[in-house]
Design a protein around this nucleic acid. Structure first.
Length: 635
DNA sequence: GTAGGGTTAG
């Protein structure tokens, strides 16, 4: 027999200490409050539902005291479902709202498919869904990119007469567009009776993700009202579409309009600066970000690290990493990759062990950075060791990129036969990048036979890429096989391929000055030429001999030297020397790889003019100082 | 209840 004491709330007894309270409590009949609290902890399996229910009845506790949403999530996908329903029907709360909160939790959980299962459960037990039900299930479909169920729910929305619910229409639009059904999305967009900013922003975001910057921008201009998210979506879209300049320009316009960029905008525009190598804009945004109180945002810090690295400022990148209170695997991987392209393999490897010591597990991208570091410095054994370790110690299956790094590592080091064997033993089909890496090694190590073999594969895999033909033509002309070189040029012509023009830019007071190879139409060309001739006198005294073998054309030596002296990176450097004060570091950005003659020249010039010259080429950084390059001539 | 962001071989 239960002790017939009146129900007293424990909080009415503040003077009792913990032990007293505890002994008192055990002699009391549970109140609704204590019951509710305890139920929350006890509720673990559906078996206990009946026991709890019995307790509730025995103590006369109102049913609403039960943690109903917890009951719902525990019973949702079990045979106790009907039992839970019977309880819900006794509570003064719409049944569907309980299932909805459960659906929301499932949709946001690690297994969103549970939301879809629950939806089927609800349907088969004739529970009537409402608009919230649909929105949560659609959210689950979106997480899973489950177009099949998405279409079912869409049909259901129409059946329930919810086709005028703007929120639902927006989710459906989002679902179609992110499942790659852009034409369905556009169809829906066009027939929507009303649209809001979310509708437009969704379209802009998804078009940007698909690489269609033009359509996205058209929408951006067309939309009646733009908020910060609209601008952010467009800035981000430009970055994703490989238009970082447009991204920075739009960002500037956004500031002019008086809108305050938020954390997401900052990430997007910093990524644009990284792509552009726009250090000054990047620095300004870093300052803005700090002033806005974004210091603790990990994604911003990670993007800042990447931005500084890609702008050639390793020190600044280190400072950002050093100042981070919390780091993710991305923070470390970004820095490791950064050190790799700056030729600091030892530091990259050190950072890796520091990372694992702090308990952070590397991911597939971390290993790309590590292998890259080995590759840029010729660390063959270390590279093999990392390649083996990634699977053995971390269960990461190497992807095509990892194989690419290994082929690059071996080829660069001149182990061409070994590289070829490695390719033949790959468990996945080698792609153009793999053969391209081998071809690159053949150029450095002047192996015509292997180069031709690689080219046969490249011919099949990526016949429209001019770069490979140029490399092979280069190999031929260096070996003075003019017939073969000419044959290749003819092949390129027949295929409608043109050699990508060399483009270099040098930034002076925030303005990027661009130079094209061979361009003598620049207004300051005469000045540049004069300066180059002066430099050459000093260079020749230091033993400089123009390396005319890099010139593809079969022309006389004097002509070759002329072509050589007008390489875009040389024009940019000389212009930079003229227009900047002595001692200032010169930063050059080139779209292709730096040529061997320019590399040799820059080393000498850095010594002659006593300046640091930082060149970011298509692959990595070269930092010239006191007659040496940070790549130690291994590239 | 609906829209967004960070590292990735050559």
């Amino acid at each position: 027999m239960v002790c017939p004491l009146p129900s007293i709330s424990l909080c009415m007894l503040p003077s009792l200490n913990f032990e007293q309270r505890h002994s008192f409590r055990s002699s009391l009949k549970p109140t609704s409050e204590t019951l509710q609290r305890e139920l929350f902890h006890k509720f673990n399996s559906p078996f206990e539902l009946q026991q709890v229910h019995t307790l509730v009845i025995k103590t006369g506790t109102p049913l609403s005291a039960l943690p109903l949403s917890r009951v719902a999530s525990i019973c949702a996908l079990t045979p106790s479902f009907p039992y839970a329903r019977r309880i819900f029907q006794l509570v003064d709360q719409p049944e569907i709202s309980l299932w909805n909160s459960c659906l929301r939790d499932f949709a946001e959980s690690d297994s969103p498919f549970d939301a879809i299962l629950l939806f089927h459960q609800l349907r088969s037990h004739n529970v009537c869904p409402d608009s919230f039900t649909c929105s949560f299930v659609l959210k689950a479909c979106l997480q899973l990119l489950d177009l099949f169920h998405g279409r079912i729910i869409h049909a259901f929305v129409e059946k329930l007469g919810l086709q005028f619910n703007l929120v639902l229409q927006n989710v459906i639009l989002h679902l179609y567009s992110s499942c790659g059904q852009i034409s369905d999305a556009i169809l829906l967009f066009n027939k929507m009776p009303q649209r809001d900013t979310v509708t437009w922003n969704t379209m802009i975001t998804q078009l940007g993700k698909r690489g269609d910057a033009d359509s996205a921008y058209e929408m951006f201009l067309q939309m009646p009202e733009r908020n910060v998210r609209s601008w952010t979506a467009m800035v981000s879209g430009f970055v994703q579409c490989g238009k970082p300049k447009e991204a920075v320009d739009l960002f500037t316009k956004m500031e002019e309009v008086g809108l305050k960029p938020n954390e997401v905008t900052v990430v997007a525009v910093l990524a644009a600066c990284a792509d552009l190598g726009a250090l000054n804009v990047g620095r300004r945004i870093h300052k803005y970000s700090d002033e806005s109180g974004f210091q603790r945002n990990i994604k911003i810090s990670n993007t800042l690290i990447d931005m500084y690295i890609k702008c050639g400022c390793l020190e600044a990148a280190r400072d950002v990493l050093g100042g981070m209170k919390e780091r993710t695997v991305i923070s470390w991987s970004t820095m490791i990759q950064g050190l790799a392209i700056h030729g600091k393999a030892d530091e990259a490897l050190e950072l890796f062990s520091e990372m694992t010591q702090t308990g952070i597990k590397p991911n597939a991208v971390t290993f790309i950075g590590l292998l890259n570091a080995c590759s840029h410095m010729g660390l063959i054994n270390e590279g093999y060791a990392f390649f083996a370790s990634m699977t053995r110690d971390y269960g990461i299956i190497p992807g095509i990129e990892h194989y690419g790094c290994m082929v690059d590592l071996l080829s660069r080091a001149g182990l061409l036969q070994q590289a070829h064997e490695f390719i033949k033993q790959m468990p996945i089909m080698p792609n153009a990048a793999i053969w391209g890496a081998l071809l690159g090694g053949c150029k450095v190590h002047k192996n015509i036979e292997m180069a031709e073999l690689a080219m046969r594969h490249l011919h099949e895999l990526d016949s429209l890429n001019d770069g490979y033909y140029v490399v092979l033509a280069n190999i031929y002309s260096e070996a003075k096989q003019w017939d073969n070189a000419a044959r290749l040029r003819k092949l390129m012509r027949n295929r409608g391929l043109k050699k990508t023009l060399g483009l270099s830019s040098v930034s002076i007071k925030e303005v990027a000055h661009e130079f094209v190879a061979g361009d003598d139409t620049h207004p300051q060309f005469q000045e540049i030429l004069k300066m180059w001739n002066q430099l050459q006198v000093h260079m020749r005294l230091k033993g400089y001999i123009p390396n005319t073998s890099v010139v593809l054309l079969d022309i006389d030596e004097k002509e070759k030297e002329k072509v050589l002296s007008r390489h875009s990176e040389k024009l940019a450097l000389v212009f930079g020397l003229i227009r900047t004060p002595p001692g200032e570091t010169i930063r050059i950005f080139k779209n292709l790889r730096i040529c061997e003659d320019c590399h040799a020249s820059f080393k000498l010039i850095s010594e002659i003019v006593d300046r640091e010259i930082v060149v970011r080429d298509r692959n990595r950084f070269h930092c010239f100082k006191d007659g040496c390059c940070s790549c130690r001539d291994y590239w």
